[in-house]
Design a protein around this nucleic acid. Structure first.
Lengths: 232, 232
DNA sequence: CGCAAGATTGAAGGACATCAAAGGGCGTGG
DNA sequence: CCACGCCCTTTGATGTCCTTCAATCTTGCG
């Protein structure tokens, strides 16, 4: 991959916002680029972090395998997002695993180099604080949802959130931009694939969504937002 | 409150870890101290942050009022914790409300002064990043629990976590260090007070806990950890 | 065409929320 | 100091949401 293209990928990330061009050059110097296939594990829960990863392209799923063998998905990351950043900054074992959900381009620095760069360019640390804060907020919001809302509401919220992140305009509506099974949705929402299937089918009959194998198109965003917020 | 005493309260906080004595003096200069009664609201969801607060003494509950009138508790903060820090750093409205759960001593800087101090003493920003990262991790962990575990497991986890934070050795076991109702526990766990009452009663009969009005003593930490981890 | 992975659907059971009512403990005011 | 009242807690009954299990159907691909 050519260097200019890498620069384009990197500047998507909030991590390097407000960085002067020479600083950005310096950051680019130390950066490695690699492409990984869908379903590749980037790291496992419990591993020690060795590199700071910025997702250049593709989708990464961050998840935990929980007692009882039930997996729970914490994040679906898109281009520009940091992968496993908290563990790198805190120098602790990863609290979750990360899997390339689609084919991905990863930009990375060694953990040591990343920390040096943060020393040298304080703006990076400021950006990191902002980014981690945003993630904490999102987690807090989802925790509140999970604690108080029903499955149908949570499915609506999940689809709206995913569509907002990586949705692409479809013929009539917004389509999640990558293949997503009922099981995948269930792991995000905290339920099982049967429940997801029933809810989606029901919505499809009412014209709120269009469904297919590994595919969901949001046809009526407003009604879905009503369901997400008022439960009806 | 005398200045030496304030210093003692402040150094509990990870925010000022590794700060040189003169830097700490400088930080102390800009600091305000106040005491608030239990049940005082520190800020409401949606407010704009005006100050950075470190909890010197007492317990603060961070919570959201959700659609349908169900409150959900996100954190129970103790001495040394930052209150509403993410919103201050990100200069966004508070995503949750904060209430003094017991009588509290609050240490605070104006938001502007706090940002200046972070510029001047980079260690503070590093500490802040570490702290916010830890909170993000805790939230991720709780989200996973909430998504996959049953009420009884979550109650066990909650009691163990609270006991670990602020527990005090009781005659036989660990006692949560402040008055906590079944309703309070329910709002943390994401259930209702009836369920909490039944579970605690059941555990009390087996000698795992000792219960009372606004009071829980953990008598058998090991068994509770088993319940938290294996569900049985 | 046949297989594998994903999706749907029905039935049954369990965990949990909700509603209703009654039983303590603690502070307050008489 | 006692009694009243309030808040917290307990407990039972009931209903419902959701999980689980089992089976069938669909879709895409080799």
């Amino acid at each position: 991959m050519s260097v200019p293209a890498v620069r384009e990928l990197l500047v998507q990330s909030p991590l390097v916002a407000d960085l002067s061009p020479p600083a950005l050059d310096d950051v680019l110097q130390a950066l490695s680029v690699r492409m990984v296939a869908a379903k590749t594990m980037l790291f496992h829960q419990g591993d020690l972090p060795t590199e700071l990863i910025v997702l250049g392209k593709g989708i990464v799923k961050v998840w935990q395998m929980r007692a009882g063998g039930t997996p729970a998905t914490l994040h679906m990351l898109g281009p520009g997002d940091l992968v496993g950043a908290v563990a790198v900054f805190r120098r602790i074992p990863f609290p979750a695993s990360a899997t390339a959900f689609t084919e991905c381009i990863l930009l990375s620095w060694t953990a040591a180099r990343a920390n040096e760069l943060m020393e040298q360019y304080p703006a990076i640390r400021t950006n990191a604080l902002d980014y981690v804060g945003r993630r904490a907020e999102e987690l807090a919001h989802r925790l509140g949802e999970m604690a108080t809302e029903r499955v149908e509401q949570r499915i609506a919220r999940t689809l709206l959130r995913l569509a907002g992140q990586t949705g692409v305009a479809a013929s009539e509506g917004i389509e999640i931009g990558y293949p997503l099974s009922r099981q995948d949705i269930a792991e995000i929402v905290g339920t099982d694939l049967y429940g997801v299937s029933r809810v989606l089918r029901n919505w499809a009959k009412q014209g709120l969504v269009e469904t297919g194998r590994l595919r969901v198109v949001l046809r009526n965003r407003q009604r879905l937002e009503q369901i997400a917020n008022r439960g009806g």
